[in-house]
Write a protein that binds this DNA or RNA. Structure first.
Length: 820
RNA sequence: GCCGAAGUGGCGGAAUGGCAGACGCGCCUCUCUCAAAAAGAGGUGAGGGUUCCCUCAUGUGGGUUCGACUCCCACCUUCGGCACCA
């Protein structure tokens, strides 16, 4: 005689975790005979503590991976650590711990925490980017990019974070401040390494091969910022060419001034001596302005006339040249033709400095007067010589043709995106494998000399200077070509380089001959389902696409896109605000795991709401899910005591009770399956709760002695397995069913069994519900309308009214419309 | 300013043209208990009438429709992204 056991998650969870690990249950192996499925979560930065936000990312993803496994796919669900980055270096400065020690310690702690989640991660494939066996391949890949001309060095004004003491990529500057520490970014001219992502701008705009959230595609599209137009060459009176980029060549006859960015080299050349002092002062002041001041749209548009003129190539008019800091040196040609009548910024500028504002595109109904504001829409060209009367849209084409015929300009596409700046003046990153030799110049480190190791005995100074620069043993080397004394590049790589290809490394994490095994990558890639936060929209997700395309063109890959499907989960909050240490509202999942078990924490995070919308953690809310786990446990305990009826449910005539039971079972399979496929874990759990509540209500009845009852109980456990893997495994085991539940096929539903026999026919009078009738599901049109009209409650409302129309929606409702 | 998402009970949310509020939290009543906790049963949008029923109700205002949380137009609020990109 068995006795009902209490649900003790803390006992069963570690037990099964150990068993699964021992049996290597979740290790993935290439098998050409089976359909692969690569599910991936964004790997974490090893900050040292797994918080509930990580769980929110990983628990539903894990349930999804388990679901796909049970569906028969050969699933790979790897995990690793994005282990390079500034916090480790800060810890080194603050607490005197070496970044390596700090990071490795954190990885060890997080590994244990990640295991407590009860996940399906294949730990045999773990990668950590800070080890030489990983970062040597960053260096190897850098050299491939370098050889193809996709990596280059340039001295350009760059975003400089004075607190992190490093330059930042454009993508890492948010509202003019450092993405990481919030310090206002300044500009500095620094020699730095860049990757030519702009070469792939057009291809990156093509999303036709991937199924990604609209939102991310829009963000990437806007970030790339493709605009089409023309480059028009104005010529200064002293002969210099001043090309400008414009999207509106049709407005060229309306140019009344030219504005150069303060950094533009021609400012120096074209400034007349009379204007020299004013211009120098203006340029100096513009340079001092912080990025945030300069980028503010509220800021007055200012500028200074530099004394020279250039000529409008279309009408030969003399155009005064100004310098103004609303023109960005880094976009287009760093010079703008001022068309005040048809550009809002030029309009304000012209108003401020009293420059003429001639109309060259007639707004609808325009009668030749002055414009109250810039007109940026379409219209007929006017005051434009031979182009007069052309619609502006056509005018754009005609003007470009004219410019090209006369050698005055050309069609041009311009992008907002800049090349990806990967140099970082930091220690804890991948050293860029380059040597500088007085004789041979810039020399790439030969592949056979890789890796260029990070020296372990670096010195971390609070001044923030790069420890590599100060390390003579690292800096001083010999030239690989001529053998003479040379120095190493001391910049390290942006950590986004590491994460741009880690999903390839998972396929052969221990390969020491090449970054990835071509055959294995061929089997696993692309990632079928990628899951992670939307905050990486224009960084990691864009860089990875670029990497894959560039590597494909180098002949190293055969895919066009890294991630076929993408899902962005939302953010989990506490009391409506983002969890943060400073607010003191960080929820530690370990506390709840030790009280209620990992299964409950997993399930609660899935139950909170739609995964993509995020949710608010509630200590009370999780109690409800824990109660549910207990209900499910107790239900199966009772089944154990009563014994599980043997046999399979028979086909054919059954009692209404059995038909109900099987309908519930099959409907639930359908709901749960479709919900997981749509990532609707919250409604999936609601369906499981309803099913469990129903089973509890018929538990002692006749049906609980039929084979249909066994089917129902087994189904419940199978459907619960992705969400509550430990509880499901334990119950499955207790019922004497074969190990492991996680290797069982996912149940399938039978539409006929799931179909309703009776429906509630809603009867409305003039759109208001007046009656509900129980009718057979196949009820005919006439029959339904007849029953509706015959209902006493309905007749009450039809008193003294004439029926004008009766609408019948099969299987749903009857609406009786009365005449007025 | 531009682009995008979202607004539903006390709370998280469900329903994407057809019974608004599934499921859960909280709250109320009851059972068990010396008592409490746990567990279980019932109730729970608002207002009116109290077996039963009616009216109102999905950010605001219009519209389409027999019928709108759902579709269309305008507006308000919140959140996310971009922000002088010529």
């Amino acid at each position: 005689m068995t006795v009902a056991k209490e649900y003790k998650p803390t006992e069963i969870e570690p037990k099964w975790q150990a068993r699964w690990a021992e049996d290597r249950l979740y290790e993935a192996h290439e098998d050409p005979a089976r359909q692969k499925y690569y599910t991936l979560v964004m790997f974490p930065y090893p900050s040292g503590d797994l918080h509930v936000g990580h769980w929110y990312n990983y628990a539903p993803a894990d349930a999804f991976a388990r679901f796909q496994r049970m569906h028969g796919f050969n699933v790979m669900h790897p995990i690793g650590f994005d282990a390079f980055g500034l916090p480790a270096e800060n810890a080194a400065v603050k607490r005197g711990i070496h970044p390596f020690t700090w990071t490795v310690g954190n990885i060890e702690r997080m590994r244990e925490q990640l295991r407590s989640l009860g996940s399906v991660f294949d730990w045999s494939r773990e990668v950590a980017t800070c080890f030489p066996d990983y970062y040597r391949w960053n260096q190897w890949l850098f050299l491939q990019f370098y050889n193809k001309g996709l990596a280059y060095k340039a001295k350009k004004p760059a975003n400089w974070c004075p607190s992190c003491n490093t330059v930042l990529a454009n993508e890492q500057v948010v509202d003019g401040a450092c993405e990481r520490c919030g310090t206002i970014v300044t500009r500095r001219d620094i020699d730095q390494w860049l990757l030519r992502i702009t070469d792939y701008a057009d291809e990156l705009l093509d999303f036709s091969r991937i199924d990604w959230p609209e939102k991310i595609k829009i963000m990437q599209t806007n970030w790339i910022g493709r605009s089409t137009g023309a480059e028009i060459v104005f010529r200064a009176e002293s002969g210099q060419e001043i090309p400008v980029f414009t999207t509106r060549p049709d407005t060229t006859f309306g140019v009344t001034f030219m504005v150069l960015a303060p950094e533009h080299p021609l400012v120096e050349q074209l400034t007349t001596s009379a204007r020299r002092q004013a211009v120098d002062e203006y340029v100096e002041q513009a340079r001092r302005a912080t990025e945030i001041e300069r980028l503010s749209t509220e800021r007055e548009k200012t500028g200074v006339f530099i004394g020279s003129y250039c000529l409008n190539p279309l009408n030969g008019e003399r155009v005064p040249i100004w310098v103004g800091d609303y023109v960005l040196y880094t976009y287009g040609t760093g010079a703008v033709m001022g068309v005040p009548a048809h550009d809002t910024r030029d309009f304000v500028f012209a108003r401020r400095y009293g420059l003429p504002i001639p109309v060259v595109i007639a707004p609808p109904g325009w009668e030749g007067g002055e414009l109250p504001e810039a007109y940026v829409g379409e219209g007929a060209m006017v005051n434009s010589g031979q182009f007069d009367d052309l619609p502006s849209k056509e005018g754009i084409e005609r003007v470009i043709e004219y410019l090209e015929e006369h050698g005055l300009g050309k069609r041009r596409v311009n992008y907002r995106i800049r090349d990806w700046l990967i140099s970082r003046q930091r220690y804890w990153g991948t050293p860029i494998p380059i040597v500088y030799c007085d004789t041979c110049g810039v020399v790439p480190v030969p592949v056979e000399d890789l890796p260029v190791l990070l020296p372990e005995d670096a010195e971390f100074r609070p001044t923030g200077e790069s420890p590599l620069k100060l390390h003579h043993g690292f800096v001083n080397t010999t030239c690989p070509i001529c053998g003479q004394d040379a120095v190493r590049e001391t910049d390290t790589m942006d950590t986004f380089v590491d994460s741009s290809w880690y999903f390839l490394r998972y396929t052969s994490p221990n390969d020491d001959r090449e970054p990835w095994d071509r055959e294995k990558v061929g089997y696993w890639l692309p990632v079928d389902q990628y899951m992670g936060g939307a905050e990486h929209a224009v960084m990691h997700l864009l860089y990875s696409r670029f990497f894959v395309k560039a590597l494909r063109d180098m002949g190293l890959l055969d895919i066009d896109e890294p991630f076929t499907h993408l899902f962005n989960q939302g953010i989990i909050t506490k009391d409506g605000t983002k969890m943060s240490k400073s607010r003191g509202n960080v929820v530690n999942p370990d506390d709840f795991v030790s009280r209620m078990g990992a299964d409950t924490v997993r399930a609660y995070l899935m139950f909170i709401g739609p995964w993509d919308q995020g949710g608010d953690w509630s200590d009370q809310g999780i109690a409800g899910v824990y109660r549910y786990m207990n209900r499910a446990w107790n239900l199966v305990q009772a089944v154990l005591l009563a014994g599980l009826p043997s046999g399979e449910p028979a086909a054919g005539e059954q009692s209404p009770g059995v038909r109900d039971l099987r309908r519930w079972t099959h409907k639930t399979i359908r709901r749960v399956t479709e919900d997981i496929e749509r990532f609707r874990f919250n409604t999936m759990l609601a369906a499981l709760m309803e099913f469990t509540n129903y089973l509890g209500s018929v538990q002692g009845s006749e049906v609980a002695r039929t084979p249909a009852w066994s089917e129902a109980i087994r189904t419940l456990l199978l459907l619960l397995a992705p969400t509550a893997p430990h509880l499901a495994e334990e119950m499955w085991h207790e019922l004497g069913l074969p190990y492991s539940i996680h290797n069982q096929p996912w149940p399938s539903w039978n539409e006929a069994l799931a179909a309703e026999e009776q429906i509630t026919l809603v009867v409305q009078v003039d759109g208001k519900v007046r009656e509900r009738l129980n009718v057979p599901v196949g009820i005919g049109d006439e029959e339904a309308k007849g029953q509706a009209l015959a209902s006493a409650n309905v007749r009450k409302f039809l008193d003294n009214r004439r029926v004008a129309n009766v609408v019948y929606v099969p299987g749903r409702l009857v609406n009786i419309v009365t005449a007025k």
